[in-house]
């Protein structure tokens, strides 16, 4: 997945504390209310957002790393900063994923090389960690969603 140039760089998460980038066992890091069990991603640690609950106590949790696609789209035009685009800009797909245990939908980019033609509503996906962008010293890691066992149709696979 990483080319030689990238290996020489320091791999760091693009945002601290939102996900565990471990290649063997990646996961989104959220919280769960200790009173009403509501899940949160990104983490909620101050006050439960369930209006019938006034808890201020939360457990750290790893969210389900598998889910199904609620909907999907792509970016055919280069998003404005603070998105860091490659040159030339390479279109990417976005997915909104339903997590069964958490009863919530979480967004993310689709794994590199997967385009909208590879995706469908209801398709099973799993969490992966890939490089979002790089600078001179670092490659910045992000969570993405990869179709479970599907083959990609894209011509621009890595």
């Amino acid at each position: 997945m990483l080319c030689l140039m990238e290996i020489a760089k320091n791999a760091v998460v693009a945002i601290e504390g939102w996900f565990d980038p471990s290649p063997s066992n990646p996961a989104l890091l959220g919280t769960q209310c200790t009173e009403c069990s509501t899940f949160y991603f990104p983490r909620e640690e101050l006050f439960c957002k369930n209006p019938r609950c006034s808890s201020t106590s939360f457990d750290q949790v790893r969210l389900s790393s598998r889910g199904t696609i609620w909907s999907f789209t792509d970016a055919q035009y280069q998003p404005p900063p603070p998105y860091v685009s490659g040159d030339p800009f390479e279109p990417f797909a976005l997915v909104a994923v339903e997590l069964e245990r958490e009863k919530m939908v979480v967004m993310g980019q689709a794994a590199h090389g997967y385009q909208v033609d590879d995706l469908s509503v209801g398709m099973a996906v799993e969490l992966v960690v890939e490089t979002l962008y790089e600078d001179e010293n670092n490659s910045y890691l992000i969570w993405r969603w990869k179709p479970d066992g599907a083959s990609k149709t894209s011509k621009q696979a890595p």
């Binding site: 693009a14 945002i15 609620w70 909907s71 999907f72 789209t73 792509d74 970016a75 035009y77 998003p79 404005p80 900063p81 603070p82 998105y83 860091v84 685009s85 990417f92 976005l94 909104a96 967004m107 993310g108 980019q109 979002l132 992000i142």
Partner: peptide, 16 residues
């Protein structure tokens, strides 16, 4: 953050 981490523009949400 949604721009920075996902490149999710407004039309992306409409498209979902």
């Amino acid at each position: 953050l949604r721009f920075h981490l996902m490149g999710a523009t407004n039309p992306a949400y409409f498209a979902l």
